[in-house]
């Protein structure tokens, strides 16, 4: 798409830097609450759209593994943690607004 091209050109160095870096996303949920389900659906859609499904999201159910909440300092649910690339980013909420999400994750649409 032409629009994507211009955007890519707008920040060429960022793209280049990010390419070799592996992505690591974690979504923390607590059981199958409507919020969790919604968050997971939104996330999946986002990844497929922006990362072309190449970066799977690790979903952690804190009801099953409560001790994991301590590691990433999870307080609110759902929380999406971008562990890689650094710096660590956390996004709280069920993510209905993908623009905010993108800004938060520093993601841009890919072609």
């Amino acid at each position: 798409m032409p629009t994507t091209k211009t955007k890519t050109r707008a920040q060429p160095h960022k793209r280049d830097l990010r390419k070799p870096v592996a992505w690591n996303l974690r979504l923390y949920v607590a059981g199958q609450t409507p919020k969790s389900v919604r968050a997971f659906a939104n996330r999946k859609a986002m990844c497929e759209e922006h990362l072309k499904g190449g970066y799977p999201i690790e979903v952690i159910d804190l009801r099953k593994n409560p001790q994991l909440a301590r590691g990433d300092q999870i307080v609110a649910i759902p929380t999406l943690v971008r562990r890689l690339p650094l710096p660590l980013q956390m996004i709280v909420g069920d993510l209905p607004n993908s623009v905010l999400l993108l800004v938060g994750l520093d993601l841009r649409k890919v072609a």
Binding site: K35, L95, G104
Partner: peptide, 27 residues
């Protein structure tokens, strides 16, 4: 347990609850 919440790491994208905290406390 130390619960650290650093605001700079947060963006808000919708509704949330504190089940994470609840789970940590319960654990």
């Amino acid at each position: 347990d130390h619960v650290s919440i650093t605001r700079s790491e947060f963006g808000e994208t919708g509704e949330y609850d504190l089940d994470g905290l609840f789970i940590r406390i319960a654990d």
